[in-house]
Amino acid sequence: MAEQAQHSTNRRDFIFVATGAVGAVGAAAVVWPLINQLNPDASTLALASIEFDLSAIPEGQSVTITWRGLPVFVRHRTQAEIDEARAVQIADLKDPQTDEERTKPDHAQWLIMVANCTHLGCVPLGQSGDFDGWFCPCHGSHYDTSGRIRQGPAPTNLVVPPYEFISDTLVQIG
């Protein structure tokens, strides 16, 4: 009789464990689609990053491209613009950032920034303003040759998006 009681206890334990395992798998099968539907769709993921060929931009010129629905300035800076940006006293800036923090070490001639004024989201005009950088005519914000706010109501510098150089002439933004 003791043998039979021991045998039924082991059998009962197995049934409990098996039932719990089947229940856990069933719960995961129900929860997985609910969590997975929170992921972005394929069209959004396609815009997550873009590659752009820099070789067509002559020195001293800039282009505006679109990334994630936002305009992005890509500027091929001259050595004079780089020197001017690096000569600025950091203590004089509203949003202190060095030029080196805003560019990649081996590619200081390339400045890549989201082209939205940090005041109200307008698109600044390039190569204009009091500091020869960008000027937002809507409310009078002036940015220097590194995209740093120097004068006006904008609270912060133009945003530098995440980017990496794939080669000397190809950059991936995002």
Rank of each mutant, 00 (worst) to 15 (best):
E51M: 05
P137H: 05
L125M: 14
W134D: 02
M113N: 07
C138R: 11
N116K: 15
L47I: 04
L70S: 10
S62M: 04
T9Q: 10
W32C: 02
V63R: 12
H119R: 08
G60E: 11
C138F: 07
I82D: 03
Q6I: 13
G60K: 06
K94E: 11
P58C: 06
N10T: 01
R68S: 09
H107F: 14
G23T: 14
I82E: 07
I112T: 10
A80K: 13
T19C: 09
I90R: 12
G133A: 08
D92E: 15
T66K: 01
H107T: 04
D92K: 11
H76F: 09
V114T: 11
C117Y: 03
D53I: 09
R11W: 06
V88Y: 08
G133K: 02
A108H: 07
G126F: 09
R11I: 11
T118E: 14
A85P: 04
V114R: 03
E51W: 08
S128G: 10
I65R: 01
L125Q: 15
A80Q: 15
R75C: 05
D83P: 01
Q37W: 02
P58R: 06
P124E: 07
D53V: 13
A46C: 10
I15P: 02
G20T: 08
I57C: 06
F52V: 07
E84W: 04
L125K: 13
M113W: 00
R102M: 14
L38K: 13
S8H: 10
E100K: 11
C136T: 06
L34C: 01
K104L: 14
A42I: 13
T19I: 12
Q79P: 04
A91S: 15
A115L: 02
A18H: 02
A46F: 06
T44R: 13
S8K: 11
D132W: 07
A91L: 13
T78Y: 08
Q127Y: 14
P137W: 04
L45P: 06
I112C: 01
V123I: 14
C138T: 03
V17N: 12
N36A: 15
T98W: 08
P137A: 07
F131Y: 15
M113E: 08
P124C: 10
D99T: 09
P58F: 07
V22F: 12
P71W: 00
I112P: 04
T66D: 02
H119K: 08
E84K: 15
I57P: 06
S62I: 01
G20E: 09
D106I: 00
L93G: 03
V88W: 05
E84G: 00
G69F: 11
R11T: 14
L54I: 12
N39T: 13
I35N: 03
A48V: 03
W32Y: 15
N39R: 14
F14G: 01
E84H: 11
A18D: 08
A80H: 07
V63Y: 02
G60V: 05
F14T: 14
R86T: 10
T19Q: 07
C122W: 05
A29M: 12
I65N: 03
G69V: 04
D99S: 14
T9R: 11
L111I: 07
V25E: 00
E59N: 09
L47P: 00
A115F: 00
E59L: 07
L54N: 05
E100G: 09
F73P: 00
A29D: 02
Q89R: 13
A21F: 14
A18G: 08
A24R: 04
E100D: 15
S8L: 11
R77F: 06
I112S: 02
F135R: 05
